[in-house]
């Protein structure tokens, strides 16, 4: 089990590991100590997933290119 800091994980990584944790735990042949660790890890991962899901917000901008070819952004609204 990788002990990556859960708070730095991408949603996808957290999701994948959470699924692994769940299937490990459901396999039933894990030692009790490990199952407790898995349980705690699973709770952290689930929290991370939910955080990532809840912090999602829409932000739309368009690329602008000035005369010197420099890139910029301007917000887009009303689409």
């Amino acid at each position: 089990m990788t002990q990556t800091l859960v708070d730095e994980m991408s949603f996808e990584d957290a999701m994948r590991e959470l699924e692994q944790v769940v299937s490990d735990l459901e396999r039933g042949d894990v030692a009790l100590e490990l199952s407790i660790k898995l349980y705690e890890r699973g709770a952290e991962l689930k929290k991370r997933c939910e955080t990532k899901l809840k912090e999602a917000e829409e932000k739309v901008a368009a690329i602008t290119i000035d005369s010197s070819g420099k890139l910029g952004m301007k917000p887009v609204e009303g689409l």
Binding site: M15, E19, V21, L25, G28, A43, L53
Partner: peptide, 20 residues
């Protein structure tokens, strides 16, 4: 759906743990 999925995982973990 993902929020529901996360909730399902949570339930599965709890159930698996309690089965253990």
């Amino acid at each position: 759906e993902l929020l529901a999925w996360a909730e399902t995982q949570s339930v599965r973990i709890r159930r698996a743990m309690s089965n253990h």
